[in-house]
């Protein structure tokens, strides 16, 4: 099943140009995030200049903001923030979701009911409102933001994991393992988990995109720390000056869209490879 899936994934990769494109683009982003800032040696993100609110020119490809800082430079520095938040939040959410989903799906009974209730409760919470509330009251900070996003996103992967584990726990090879005297927890973590994880991975990719959007939203509304370069914050300045400086709004926004779209494309293609749904030829 899973060995077939690996070859299916490879097949999907070869045939779907979108997946290749998406992965290539995410590599570019990763590169920009890691090496970008050091390539812009001559300009730091906070380097003020005389040309305030200047439109895009040869000198400043994306224009400058109200303090004369290059928008392009700030965008490049923002890549790092978005990627860190996105990947960290997704990784945390996935880990939490996989563990909870596995336990809930395998042991069933009251544990399952309890975890399902918690999952439902979190699903109901309006994400942005709650995140904004928490950050407003408990204070800003990248760790807090990552944590809050992870807490709100884990139910998604838990649900998929639970369904997978439930499907597998009544399979015959699991009974055969029990007949060998192998302990329940070993069966869950060593035998079932590796087989159940593949369909959960696309969910992780989608969470990355959601995390980046949420971070941008929080930043836009002034709920992240000002020292950290963030595309959302650029858009806040954009809001102030949209009468005269459209570039403050357009370019950072495009950066967000392209980044999130990349991850969504990869996630969508992975989803089609792992979970062939009706309607996807």
């Amino acid at each position: 099943m899973a060995a077939e899936k690996s070859s299916r994934l490879l097949q999907a990769f070869k045939s779907r140009k979108i997946l290749q494109f998406g992965l290539a683009l995410s590599c570019v982003l990763l590169f920009a995030g890691i090496f970008g800032p050091s390539l812009l040696v001559d300009r730091g993100p906070n380097q003020i200049s005389q040309s305030i609110l200047a439109p895009p020119s040869a000198d400043a490809l994306f224009g400058t903001d109200e303090l004369g800082r290059s928008v392009l430079t700030q965008i490049v520095y923002g890549v790092r923030t978005s990627l860190v938040v996105g990947l960290a939040a997704a990784a945390t959410a996935m880990t939490l979701g996989v563990v909870m989903g596995a336990i809930s799906g395998y042991f069933g009974g009251r544990v399952d009911t309890f975890v399902s209730r918690i999952t439902e409760t979190f699903q109901v919470m309006p994400t942005f409102v709650l995140a904004a509330l928490v950050v407003a009251m408990a204070g800003t900070g990248m760790l807090k933001v990552i944590f809050i996003i992870a807490i709100l996103a884990w139910p998604q992967s838990a649900r998929v994991m639970r369904a997978q584990v439930m499907k597998m726990k009544s399979m015959e090879f699991v009974d055969a393992l029990r007949c060998l005297g192998i302990a329940e927890h070993k069966i869950l973590w060593r035998e079932i988990l590796p087989n159940a994880i593949p369909p959960v991975i696309p969910v992780g990719t989608l969470v990355i995109g959601q995390a980046i959007l949420l971070e941008a939203s929080l930043a836009f509304f002034g709920l992240t720390s000002p020292e950290v370069a963030s595309w959302g914050r650029l858009l806040t300045s954009g809001q102030q000056y949209f009468y005269f400086a459209w570039w403050l709004t357009v370019f950072p926004g495009l950066a967000i869209v392209i980044t999130v779209l990349t991850f969504n494309l990869v996630g969508d293609a992975l989803n089609q490879a792992f979970n062939p749904r009706s309607g996807d030829a």
Binding site: G209, G232, L235, W246, V257, L265
Partner: peptide
């Protein structure tokens, strides 16, 4: 659907204001 899922809604608002209202 995929595209709209990737866009921050407040940004769309800003862009619309710039394009349709201001410009």
């Amino acid at each position: 659907i995929l595209f709209v899922d990737s866009i921050p809604i407040f940004w769309v608002g800003q862009v619309f204001i710039i394009v349709f209202a201001v410009q």
